[in-house]
Design a protein around this nucleic acid. Sequence first.
DNA 1: TTGACATATTCCAATATAGGTATATTATAA
DNA 2: TTATAATATACCTATATTGGAATATGTCAA
Lengths: 124, 124
Amino acid sequence: MARARTTFDSFNAVAEPRRRQVLGLLAAGELPVNDIVDTLGWNQPQVSKHLGVLLEVGLVKVRHVGRQRFYSVEAAPLKEIHDWTATFEHFWQHQLDRIKERAEAKQTLARGRGSVPPGGLSAS
Amino acid sequence: MARARTTFDSFNAVAEPRRRQVLGLLAAGELPVNDIVDTLGWNQPQVSKHLGVLLEVGLVKVRHVGRQRFYSVEAAPLKEIHDWTATFEHFWQHQLDRIKERAEAKQTLARGRGSVPPGGLSAS
DNA sequence: TTGACATATTCCAATATAGGTATATTATAA
DNA sequence: TTATAATATACCTATATTGGAATATGTCAA
């Protein structure tokens, strides 16, 4: 068996970094294909193909205006991903809590010695 | 060129539905491999392989106890995905607002006629 | 030290992908 | 109706993936 199709899921569609880039661009508002081509500097067929995948999983929608096609973000599938990851939200909440606690404990312990833990925000 | 490797990204790792299932299981707490095998009813090697991918991108961590290996969720990469999708949060917020507005307008318009739009929560 | 348990790794086949280039499609303007 | 602009599609190649089966690794118990 092979990998799940890119068009199987919004998860799979969004796995491709380029497609995330396209969505990032469209976040600012709808754009015709050529604007995306010019902005990202890719070949036109590649842009069209990525848009095709995004369209097929419902991550974007199109508006035809003359010979131009304006693509824009469609929220629902992104919310799905958001909701799924939210299932695990308490994991990083707890983790942040622990980091905070540790920082505070250290500060209490070291008041006067002015220490800041090296490595800053690195989790785990 | 082929697709990005599954181990390239948490996005790619999580694109595989089975791996999301595994993470879902582990959300309840750490588990040894055989428990996952029994619960999901997959072949042991497949479970190990999926865990391997998840481990490589840092979505899980392992604790060795004798000949058992307890896997558990690691939050950071999931938060990355969560944060990325959050970039688009205003899209579905607005969408929900519009739905709400429409519903309220309809209710105001139809007070007394007791209508509930069929299809309920369907977005777009 | 040997056997059994828990897990990982290797080898296999089938498959879908992404980029590149060329070409098709559709719509506008002349 | 024809040339051209805007976009989509087809064809090609290299590649990584998934599941399955068999086997290897590591660890405990007797």
